[in-house]
Design a protein around this nucleic acid. Structure first.
Length: 703
RNA sequence: GGGCGGUUAGCUCAGUUGGUUAGAGCGUGUCUUUGACGUAGACAAGGCCACAGAUUCGAAUUCUGUACCGCCCACCA
């Protein structure tokens, strides 16, 4: 009997192993594609690239990140073993608005507020906060076993990043794809910033629906507080009920604060079936009304200020918050006999801020917008011809639908935390001019005085350029080798925010799709398939699980039973089961290393194993990681341990099994390595005659 | 209002192009201190595959409809 490593006499101890092994890998330099050893066929020529979705540096790693790190690391390790020049490029995200919200909550706890704070000082505080989080996050990513190239790490506020983002901004401006304009935007009065349409959450509510007398008409509204300035009454041109009224006709009527003159407008946007078929419009605070006003060249008046309070036009209600003003206004209207009836059961959709739930108040604002249609058309074309594969496939449909109905993208944010917009704004006429060199000092339109734009970019405008920015575009070195990247693996929830915008911007700047495959994972839920949330108290910290059961066990738990696109229920019991698996493998090793590696290979057992290897390889190539993992688990435990090893015991001449079991063990370790890298690497080091690290061993190939 | 997923064992989920008796893990029960491992082994119980139709020699798998759960999209004031 040969003597196995004495370590094997004790149960497998992930705590003792993982940090040491990770350092071994890091020290080897193999995370960096430039340092990878040649493979059997010579130099590594073909690249395989994954750009890691930059992790928000505003907290700590959550279960979703655990899933990202696991799946991407599996792909990378698999391809690395197959001889590809593999690059997994890690990054951190300043995450603009998201982080600012987190920081504002922190300020609130300290009894402070961002309003009134010096902008630079606030920026510096959040930067410090982010940088100190970054360290923490990075060590957590390493705990997950991520074999990413830290030498190429990027942060979304790195100079090289902002430089490229600025160049893109300028180029788009010159190409007429970016314009500054007074357009209606979604405004959150709590956070004091505008949003794009994606930061809005629709919420179904039941409210009162008021039928008001407006001269000879009855108009219906859920928002009487916006009605002060309504001086246009709109109806469908084909509505026979109102054929006596003509477009542009003036009528006099009594309104909230006295007599007014209203103008009749005929517009096809009015739904004859809805309400009375007549409505008044508030172009400053409603996007549909805004469109009608634009079509007919109507006046637009602001009624509500940026804090949600009524302006002077509201007369006696001026200065009142809209929430408080509504019942007061209705009371007054009732006293004046202008309320026809009230429907108390009106079900409708209210748009709210996705962070704080504050009702969004549309406002007309002078902001930077990206003209999306030309960008979307190009993306659609490429997606439709199949240049990008979606896994699961139905995300393709979702994407093309969104692209076909795309709206212009407001990229200005009135927050401090982000990349400053390199532009000058004319104080007099509001004209905006892109100014990368800080050279413009008077308005190119009216020669008026200009001021620096104090807004920042929507964080997705910069992260939307992530694949080519991180590869150093336009510098050719890495860009040539690694772009287009191979797989973009991320959560299905940011398919529009991020994935689709990367496609559009990537095509615009580089003429190529930024990635060939989009792999979208689902959400990680708690053991009962409930969404994790702090308020529910069911948040599972991945680091507690890795600490308790080992990273390998955690990774197996993230993969097995997890198909792309569908959500995953994470239960500590499941993870515990895979801790046992690591230990099982450990003990299998102990048994096998107790045997001489000699004798003939048993052809039947070898063929059986090779079939498995082939099968698993096929699963890996088709992104069926859950299946590969499960097959390996089942084979290792229930075939190899329960049957083959048991048979070898009964057989008095163990030698017959020696070579075969060594063969199976050695190759099983290779197949298992992408999933459970730590324990396999540790065992690998104990095998006789192993020189290389397992991380760069050749993946088994069979015909 | 439109669209997309899902519904399989007590729980969490697989089931790759339709093909014997529908699988796994966890949990449950009984037994086993065998010299790799008790973080184990052996055995077992447990499912009209949501429901109703259709196609087929054959359907958990394809089609149609229904119900329920979840998600996304939408400017009916």
């Amino acid at each position: 009997m040969t003597t196995a490593n004495p370590k094997l006499l004790k149960p497998y101890d992930p705590k003792e192993t993982e940090e040491r092994i990770y350092k071994l890998w890091e020290g080897s330099g193999f995370f960096n594609p430039d340092n990878l050893p040649d493979n059997k066929d010579g130099k590594r020529k073909e690249a395989f690239t994954i750009i890691m979705p930059p992790v928000n540096a505003n907290g700590s790693l959550h279960a979703g990140h655990g899933l990202v790190m696991t799946i991407e690391d599996i792909m990378i390790r698999y391809k690395r073993m197959q001889g590809f020049k593999t690059l997994w490029l890690p990054g951190l995200d300043h995450a603009g608005f998201e982080t600012q919200v987190v920081y504002e909550k922190k300020l609130e706890k300290e009894g402070r507020t961002r309003f009134g704070m010096d902008r630079l000082e606030l920026y510096k505080e959040i930067l410090d906060f982010t940088l100190s989080n970054s360290k923490n996050i990075k060590s957590q990513i390493k705990k997950m076993g991520a074999s990413c190239d830290w030498s190429r790490e990027k942060f979304t506020l790195d100079d090289s990043v902002t430089k490229t983002v600025y160049q893109t901004f300028k180029r788009m401006y010159d190409d007429n794809l970016i314009y500054r304009g007074n357009r209606i935007v979604s405004w959150c009065s709590k956070h004091q910033t505008s949003f794009s349409d994606l930061e809005i959450k629709d919420e179904e509510r039941i409210d009162n629906f008021y039928y008001l007398k407006y001269g000879p008409f009855i108009i219906a509204t859920a928002r009487p507080e916006t009605k002060f300035g309504d001086k246009y009454v709109v109806m469908h041109p084909k509505d026979k009920r109102y054929k006596e009224y003509t477009d542009g006709q003036k009528i006099k009527l009594e309104w909230i604060n006295g007599p007014i003159e209203a103008t009749i407008v005929k517009d096809g946007a009015v739904d004859m079936e809805f309400g009375t078929g007549v409505m008044t419009i508030t172009p400053w605070h409603d996007s549909a009304d805004f469109e009608i006003a634009e079509r007919h060249g109507l006046d637009k008046e602001q009624i509500i200020d940026e804090n949600g309070k009524l302006l002077a036009i509201a007369g006696e209600f001026a200065g009142e918050h809209i929430k408080k003003a509504r019942p007061l206004i209705i009371k007054k209207l009732q006293e004046k006999g202008l309320v026809e009836k009230v429907d108390e059961n009106y079900k409708h959709v209210v748009r709210t801020c996705y962070k704080c739930g504050t009702v969004i108040e549309p406002q007309i604002k002078n902001q930077w917008f990206v003209k999306m249609k030309p960008l979307a058309e190009r993306a659609l074309e490429k997606i439709n011809v199949g240049e990008i594969t979606y896994i699961p496939e139905h995300y393709k449909k979702i994407t093309t639908y969104w692209l076909s109905n795309i709206m212009d993208w407001n990229i200005s944010r009135q927050i401090v935390w982000g990349i400053p917009i390199p532009a000058k704004i004319c104080i007099e006429c509001g004209h905006g001019m892109v100014d990368l060199e800080n050279k413009i000092n008077k308005c190119e339109k009216c020669a008026g005085q200009v001021a620096q734009d104090i807004d920042t970019f929507d964080t997705w405008f910069s992260s939307g350029q992530w694949p080519y920015v991180t590869l150093g575009y336009p510098d050719e070195k890495d860009f040539e080798t690694f772009y287009p990247t191979d797989v973009m693996e991320t959560g299905g929830d940011i398919i529009f925010f991020w994935v689709t915008r990367m496609i559009m911007l990537g095509l615009y700047i580089t003429d190529k799709v930024p990635f060939k495959t989009v792999y979208l994972h689902g959400m990680v839920l708690d053991a009962k398939s409930q969404k994790m949330s702090k308020s529910k108290g069911n948040v599972i910290d991945p680091l507690i699980l890795t600490d308790q059961f080992g990273t390998d066990a955690f990774r197996m738990g993230m993969v097995v039973g997890n198909t792309s696109g569908t959500s995953l229920a994470l239960s500590p019991l499941k993870i515990r089961g895979y801790k046992n698996f690591a230990n099982k493998l450990w003990n299998i090793t102990r048994y096998i290393l107790g045997m001489e590696n000699s004798g003939e290979l048993n052809k039947k057992l070898k063929d059986e194993f090779d079939m498995l290897a082939k099968d698993v390889t096929l699963d890996m190539d088709n992104f069926r990681f859950y299946m590969a993992a499960e097959k390996l688990y089942a084979y290792t435990w229930h075939r190899l341990a329960d049957e083959i090893i048991e048979e070898s015991k009964e057989n008095k001449n163990k030698k017959e099994y020696g070579a075969t079991l060594h063969y199976i063990l050695e190759n099983s370790l290779k197949l298992l390595h992408p999933f459970i890298p730590f324990v396999t690497e540790e065992i690998w080091s104990m095998l006789p005659n192993t020189k290389n690290l397992l991380i760069v061993e050749q993946w088994p190939k069979y015909k």
